[in-house]
Design a protein around this nucleic acid. Structure first.
Length: 519
RNA sequence: GCCCUCAUAGUCUAGCGGCCUAGGACGUCACCCUUUCAAGGUGAAGAUCGCGGGUUCGAAUCCCGCUGGGGGUACCA
């Protein structure tokens, strides 16, 4: 008889959990949420209770048809960016590796053999054609489609004959035909299943690779997982896995199914609704802390009013007990709000300045360099970010809002914008001439003094302060919207302010000529 | 079809039998602040707690049914 795979010796540790993605694409936001809750449980809740909370990354690459080269690297990248760290995994190693299922096939083969030997599984030689035919017939008769257990019931003679040949086969689980199986979900309580409704699932495929069911159970056992945390969509497989543990004679880990993320219109969140991959949110200028905060509140809450939970707060407060069983709809709007909160109020100025750098580099506004204080332009960027961070919803908004600070040339703008409300071209020109003269002898680093001088000037000119300020604002920024005028002037610098006002005056004169010649 | 699961405003949620004339947040609208735009502040509208039965002196909270949403039903995970 084939021996059942056995656990390696490992010091008794409190909580061992894993995130087990398949490298079939980029990290979906739903997967990120599952990973995060699992991480919070191990590194937050368990460790707060004085337990050794271990978070493991395991790569479930048993489907050779869906394998995507590079996906694993992308997954790990995205997980790191998101802010998760694991204690054991394919990249960091660990005592119960390897952490790729494709390197653990011997365990699964052995486990399947053991189950056959003990009568809990059997070889099935049915062809795909036959399975399809059976399904079609069942459906035609209005029956529930499913494997008819043909190979489970063959005579001993036929069985022996088949085994002597070299036909390809799969190994199926011999599901109990009666009784019921109860799964105790940590989040939703007991779930009862009638065994008669359960199918004889394939455990080992004809290519020798295991299915999810076998590999998952065997690995969770061998890796000494204490709590299974996974998405809601796995609930229907829970009784099968429970029965599998029983067949092996292994203790079943505790299990918790985390609520799914739904799309705004209902159904799965897909490309049609917007971004779904963590990598996309990153590229769009979301900060990981905000994404984490938003996702945490999609199914978990601490109290009736707290909304802002930076990662350390999450680690300090998260409990599985307060995770809701109901699925939640993804709201891009609210994510944006969280992102804005982090950029405007939670992250430090230096931090935001650093994070904005890659976006400015991509836009060609500053030279490439490190995304922190080591960048040669850091001080400049920091000064600008100080004025603008409150109007950043995402980091990707930065290049557009910051252009007129970082480049000498202004973007093209409509000359008519220079003329404030209730003023005409000549009045505007006069105002700018006076403003330029005043600016020439002003100390822009003293914002209060500059403002006082300009307010006085407005009065001399018989203008409202806002009118004068708007003319200057447009001349200096090329826009009707900007941070406070005097801090804007200070950061842009006197020389550039003067040359921009000069060119605004030139444009006004030309504009006037054009208007005249058109008449 | 069958199995499972979920159910408080458009959305995320608090609530775990009386504190609820249902609290917070996003979004929406209004006002304040104000040199523009943000940010910030204040306030408003928005939920017969999906529906129907029970249990109880009393139910958003417990039980049953229904309805609706979601998931599963592969040699994918």
């Amino acid at each position: 008889m084939t021996a059942v795979p056995s656990q390696s010796t490992l010091p008794e540790s409190g909580v061992r959990v894993r995130f087990a993605p398949s490298p079939t694409g980029s990290l979906h936001i739903g997967g990120a949420k599952t990973a995060m809750f699992t991480w919070l449980f191990a590194h937050g809740e368990a460790r707060r209770q004085g337990k050794d909370g271990v978070f493991i990354l395991r790569i479930e690459d048993t489907d050779r048809n869906r394998f995507v080269p590079g996906a694993e690297e992308g997954l790990i990248d995205a997980l790191h960016w998101f802010g998760l760290t694991w204690d054991e995994g394919p990249d960091v190693g660990g005592p119960v590796g390897p952490y790729h299922q494709s390197e653990r096939t011997e365990h699964y083969r052995q486990a399947a053999e053991h189950l056959i030997d003990t009568g809990y599984a059997y070889r099935c030689y049915c062809t795909r054609d036959r399975l399809e035919r059976v399904r079609a017939e069942q459906q035609a008769r209005g029956e529930a489609p499913g494997y008819d257990r043909h190979c489970r019931n063959v005579s001993p003679d036929e069985k022996a004959a088949r085994e002597a040949g070299d036909e390809p086969y799969v190994v199926r689980f011999a599901m109990p035909r009666e009784g019921e199986t109860v799964v105790h979900d940590l989040i939703r309580g007991p779930i009862t299943y009638q065994n008669a409704n359960l199918e004889d699932l394939v455990l080992l495929k004809s290519d020798g690779y295991p299915t999810y069911h076998l590999a998952n159970v065997v690995d969770d056992h061998l890796m000494r997982i204490t709590h299974i945390t996974r998405g809601d969509e796995w609930i229907p497989t829970a009784p099968v896995h429970t029965l599998l543990y029983q067949a092996f004679g292994w203790e079943m880990p505790a299990i918790a199914h985390l609520p799914l993320i739904l799309a705004p219109g209902g159904g799965k969140l897909s490309k049609r609704h917007g971004s779904t991959a963590v990598e996309e949110f990153r590229a769009q200028g979301y900060v990981p802390e905000a994404l984490m905060n938003y996702l945490a509140l999609l199914g978990w809450s601490f109290d009736a009013s707290t909304e802002i939970f930076p990662p350390d707060e999450l680690l300090a407060k998260f409990t599985l007990e307060r995770v809701s069983p109901s699925p939640a709809t993804f709201d891009y709007n609210k994510l944006r709000w969280f992102n804005q909160q982090y950029i405007n109020h939670v992250l430090t100025l230096d931090d935001v300045a650093g994070r904005v750098i890659p976006f400015l580099v991509d836009a060609g506004l500053i030279p490439a360099g490190p995304a922190d204080a080591a960048h040669p332009d850091f001080a400049r960027v920091r000064d600008v970010v100080e004025l603008l961070k409150d109007r950043l919803e995402t980091l990707a908004d930065a290049p557009d809002l910051m252009r007129f600070f970082l480049r000498d040339e202004l973007d093209p703008y409509d000359t008519a914008l220079l003329i404030p409300k209730k003023m005409d071209l000549q009045e505007t020109l006069d105002a700018l001439i006076a403003a330029e003269a005043a600016l020439a002898e002003a100390d822009l680093s003293d914002e209060a003094a500059t403002e006082a001088r300009m307010r006085a000037l407005a009065e001399e000119l018989g203008l409202k302060p806002g009118q004068l300020f708007m003319a200057i604002r447009v001349a200096v920024t090329g826009r009707t919207q900007s941070p406070g005028l005097f801090e804007t002037l200070r950061v842009i610098g006197k020389e550039r302010c003067q040359s921009r006002i000069a060119s605004a005056m030139t444009r006004l004169r030309q504009h006037g000529d054009e208007v005249l010649s058109a008449d």
